[in-house]
Nucleic acid binder design. Structure first.
Length: 940
RNA sequence: GCGGGUGUGGUGAAAUUGGUAGACACGCCAGACUUAGGAUCUGGUGCUUCACGGCAUGUAGGUUCGAGUCCUAUCACCCGCACCA
């Protein structure tokens, strides 16, 4: 007999002898047994319908889990277990987003290899998760830092590198198809997304050198190399994505970020902008989430119009506008300071001013520009353009409020219709043309689209909305512009000057990039001695010269991929995690298909979700998978906030005064550890031992207690308000912990953690236990037939739990369990037929206690696969209803009537009722409203 | 500024989608059992009033026999985006 079995036997004996709810023994026992029986192993072959329930996999940080983290995992676990009971083959995997900055930062500080710290962190996360009793199929665990995994991240990157986006078909295709097109007809039909001015014929294409050809192809690839201004963060020694920069400083650490030109890998996600937008219609994400993504994509419709430059033949300024209807209201034009035309058009007399202004712009960091949005700056170039319709001369200015990266980097300014243009015109005293008559008051711009146009030549008298199309048609007819859709979204930077990430499977032969052959994958991350950046901001890999220099002409790429590389496709790998031939077998991804429910935080709204949606679409276009949206339904769990406990130290002393008396003293408010406070009452002994400085602390008490103050804020170590799930599980058990997290409120909502409230849930489980077992008598369940009353309680519960679980309304489900147990307790119901059904309902929420009692009742198979109780209306149907009787909308009394009673009989009896008579008070009854099964209202 | 969301007891929250507001818990109060209670059980607990009653879902209006729920305005807080032409 194994020692494990001996341990379990002993546990069984202990349980049998005392028959109290010994959650520690129960949970340990069943967790071990579930592992032993591989209870959570999932097969890719099953006659059952599939259900894929996924959590956003965690980055295993050194800090470990706090009670906020498992909220989403518990929700998805309940759902997964529920679906399994309902007859689905459920995939519910877990893995690790194991590459990332913090491990490397830690390595820089301590010299410990990120692989080592990551493995350690991961092990402690795993232990913490196991404590809570999740039904993850750990056989399918993935780690993004595992070469067996990132081999396929690199492989997908190569597919993106070898693809372009065919705009006319709106899908990705192989680069080889593009080459064929070029050879036959040049690029006339396929505008170059990387540089719209590149145009060539088939003949020209054939004349280009290989290097030139590869340069051009690079402008089409979905994964491409480009020189671009990137967000360079000197302090972190790396480049950051736009969404990693908040208000000009790094999201992590808050370090300054400046623009720097570097050769970088990018993903051409902008080509997918429209499909990413349209795809949102097919998935069930919250409105807020969809709106955030729409916002990020930022689609706008308008036109590009070229204005001829006055005095320079065949040269024009092309602007992008969403309001072509306002073309007669253009009073000036503004170019971005970085615009190519600036040096060409600046007149000699303005040259000095313009250069001074450009110096000024250059000197300002991104951060300053962000911070001083309201400040109006600009400079006149001395040049004029001509309004294409009436030839009016329009002065051309430059200003930093126009962004080089959006549209054409130039705008036509309409001060009467745009507030920024208006402010600019006022500031520089530029004449303002009013094209909307009374709708413009001269005090502020009016951005209306509904006014009638005036001062607008052939548009006069026309509604603005109508005029938009009229102008665009005319612009197109004149050949001076075209209809144009723009997106705010930029292509995403895909290079990091870092060590702890996926190496790029790319080599440079005399500077020209070539992909590695698939057979050479994975390109494993070499060992490094130090994690300091290479020169010129290159990553640490640049320092390993014999790895970098393959031969005299061949150099490896030294950047690594960003965190979102591995997380963009991990949900596919779970379908077939051990495959060494492909990233996942097509039959497996066809079977598991889309993630049915994806649970995670809102913080990944734009980054992770958009990237993984794009990768999925690209893999779909290339024929590797059969669906193009990864996540069918998304649940965003709310954050669990900290509830800090405050103590009040009398200033200049070591005396602490209780909350209720603090106003009588001059005090400093200090955080104390929430774990040494019971509700609001401070454990004074624990407080004295908490920190050496507290050893001799004195206390001013109220009613013999020290009462703490409460502040709700983010859970963080520094505020001493973090609660470790390990401690909660140790004290109350995993089942209590799981149910309490759900009981706190709706999953999507943010709420503070308060350990005190957990006792209610714990009491509930103990009360449940007592329905089955008595401390002295042991199991007290009998086989008597259930009464109608008991069946009513049961079926009400089945109905509610079933609906609530399906809808992720777990807080009300927990309430219903409590109501059910309360009612069965007062009915003294210890009947197997009722209690067994309750256990199955409860199993997704509190799996350990449910399994234990299930076996105590003599069942020999696991409750994980028990038949789910079926709701039957006949047990809950009432024959009579107690109606609230209201007079003029105010409830005055109650009367019971059979549900099939006819209205006339009800009216008669109601009117005869004494209490009703009193409230009618002799006034004439105008109307009697009777809503069957709801209420009765008398109008007097 | 734009977009999304939330406002209900001392606290976390319910409310079958227009039908008895505050379920279920925490906390608090009283009691029972107990050597003890931070165990367990029972009862009470929105505010106000001696009581009958009155007042209560951020605020002000409206629709309706009836509004936490629908409409209009307004305030507060939270989240996201933010010179995007």
């Amino acid at each position: 007999m194994s020692s494990l079995n001996r341990l379990m036997d002993r546990t069984d004996r202990l349980l049998f002898n005392y028959m109290e709810y010994n959650f520690r023994a129960i949970e340990k026992k069943w967790q071990a047994r579930w592992v032993e029986t591989k209870a959570y192993q999932v097969s890719n072959n099953s006659p059952k319908p599939k259900c894929y329930v996924l959590d956003m996999f965690p980055y295993p940080s050194g800090a470990g889990l706090h009670v906020g983290h498992p909220l989403g995992y518990i929700s998805s676990d309940i759902y997964a277990r529920y679906k399994r009971l309902k007859g689905f083959n459920v995939l519910h995997p877990m893995g690790w987003d194991a590459f990332g900055l913090p491990a490397e930062q830690y390595a820089l500080e301590t010299g410990q290899h990120p692989a080592v710290t990551t493995a350690n962190n991961l092990a402690s996360f795993r232990r913490q998760l196991d404590n809570i009793g999740f039904s993850f199929d750990w056989e399918r665990e993935v780690r993004t830092s595992d070469p067996g995994y990132y081999k396929w991240t690199q492989w997908i990157f190569l597919q993106l590198f070898d693809s372009w986006f065919n705009r006319s078909l709106q899908k990705a295709e192989r680069i080889s198809t593009l080459i064929t097109i070029f050879e036959q007809s040049g690029n006339a039909a396929h505008e170059c997304p990387g540089d719209r001015y590149i145009r060539f014929t088939a003949e020209e294409w054939k004349q280009f050198s290989e290097v030139r050809q590869r340069e051009i192809l690079m402008h089409y690839r979905l994964a491409y190399l480009a020189f671009a201004e990137v967000n360079w963060c000197a302090a972190l020694g790396t480049v950051l994505a736009n969404d990693e920069v908040i208000n000009g400083v790094s999201e992590r650490g808050g370090f300054p970020v400046v623009k720097k030109k570097m050769r970088q890998w990018f993903l051409r996600i902008t080509e997918y902008a429209n499909r990413l937008l349209e795809g949102l219609e097919t998935v069930s994400f919250s409105d807020a989430m969809k709106e955030m993504q729409r916002n990020w994509i930022g689609k706008s419709q308008g036109a590009e119009i070229t204005f001829q430059i006055d005095g320079i033949e065949n040269a024009g300024v092309t602007v992008y506008t969403t309001r072509p209807d306002t073309i007669f209201g253009v009073d000036f034009m503004v170019l971005a300071p970085e615009h190519d035309l600036v040096s060409l058009i600046t007149t000699p007399d303005k040259k000095e001013d313009v250069e001074k202004y450009l110096d000024y712009v250059q000197s300002r960091s991104e951060r300053e520009r962000m911070a001083e949005v309201k400040q109006i700056t600009g400079c006149f170039t001395g040049a004029y353009v001509l309004n294409p319709f009436n030839g009016q001369r329009i002065p051309v200015w430059i200003s930093e409020y126009v962004l080089a990266g959006y549209g054409t980097g130039a705008i036509m300014a309409v001060p009467c219709g745009d507030q920024r243009d208006f402010n600019f015109a006022k500031h520089f005293d530029i004449h303002i043309t009013n094209i909307i008559g009374d709708a413009f008051n001269g005090e502020e711009a009016n951005a209306t689209k509904d006014a009638t146009l005036q001062n607008s030549d052939f548009l006069n008298g026309m509604n603005m909305r109508e005029a938009m199309d009229v102008v665009i048609d005319k612009v197109e007819a004149l050949g001076i512009g075209k209809r144009q859709i723009n997106y705010k979204m930029r292509d995403s930077g895909f290079s990091r000057q870092r060590y702890w990430g996926e190496p790029f499977p790319i080599v440079y032969k005399d500077g020209t990039p070539y992909p590695l052959d698939e057979k050479e994958l994975p390109l494993t991350l070499p060992h490094v001695e130090n994690y300091k950046p290479g020169e010129e901001g290159e990553g640490p890999l640049a320092n390993i010269t014999d790895w970098v220099n393959v031969d005299a002409h061949t150099r490896r790429e030294t950047n690594t991929m960003p965190g979102y590389a591995g997380s963009s496709w991990y949900f596919l790998r779970y379908a077939d995690p051990k495959n060494t031939e492909v990233f996942a077998d097509r039959a497996a991804t066809d079977y598991w298909n889309q993630v049915d429910v994806y649970v995670g935080g809102t913080e990944h709204a734009v980054g992770h979700l958009l990237y993984s949606r794009m990768w999925t679409k690209a893999l779909y276009d290339l024929g590797y998978i059969g669906f193009q949206e990864p996540y069918k339904k998304l649940i965003n769990q709310g954050m669990i906030g900290g509830s800090s406990r405050m103590v009040y130290r009398v200033r200049g002393t070591n005396t602490y005064v209780s909350h209720g008396l603090k106003d009588q003293y001059e005090t400093d408010e200090l955080h104390t550890d929430v774990n040494i406070v019971d509700g609001l009452e401070l454990d004074i002994e624990a407080f004295k031992n908490w920190r050496p400085a507290n050893k001799d602390a004195e206390f001013i008490l109220e009613d013999g207690k020290y009462i703490c103050g409460v502040v709700l804020e983010k859970m963080s170590k520094g505020k001493y308000n973090t609660v470790n799930p390990d401690d909660v599980v140790e004290k109350f058990g995993a089942d209590t912990f799981r149910m309490y997290e759900m009981f706190l409120g709706p999953v999507e909502q943010s709420k503070p953690w308060d350990t005190k409230g957990i006792e209610g849930v714990h009491r509930f489980l103990k009360k449940l236990w007592r329905l089955f077992a008595d401390e002295q008598k042991g199991i007290i369940v009998n086989n008597d037939a259930a009464t109608p009353e008991e069946l009513k309680v049961l079926h009400k519960t089945i109905q509610k739990i079933d609906a609530d679980t399906e809808n992720f309304s777990y807080n009300t489900a927990v309430s219903q369990f409590m109501i059910c147990v309360n009612e069965l307790s007062s009915l003294k119901c210890n009947k197997r037929s009722v209690l067994e059904a309750v256990l199955v309902l409860l199993a997704p929420y509190a799996p350990h206690i449910a399994e234990e009692l299930w076996h105590q009742l003599g069942n020999t198979t696991s409750i994980l696969d028990a038949p789910y109780p079926v709701f039957d209306e006949k047990y809950t149907k009432e024959s009579a209803f107690t109606y609230p009787i209201a007079v003029n909308g105010k409830t005055r009394t109650e009367l019971s009537f059979p549900l099939d009673a006819d209205n006339a009989a009800i009216e008669k009896e109601v009117l005869e009722n004494e209490a009703v008579q009193k409230w009618i008070d002799g006034k004439p009854v105008k109307k009697i409203v009777i809503v069957k099964g709801r209420m009765i209202n008398l109008v007097v």
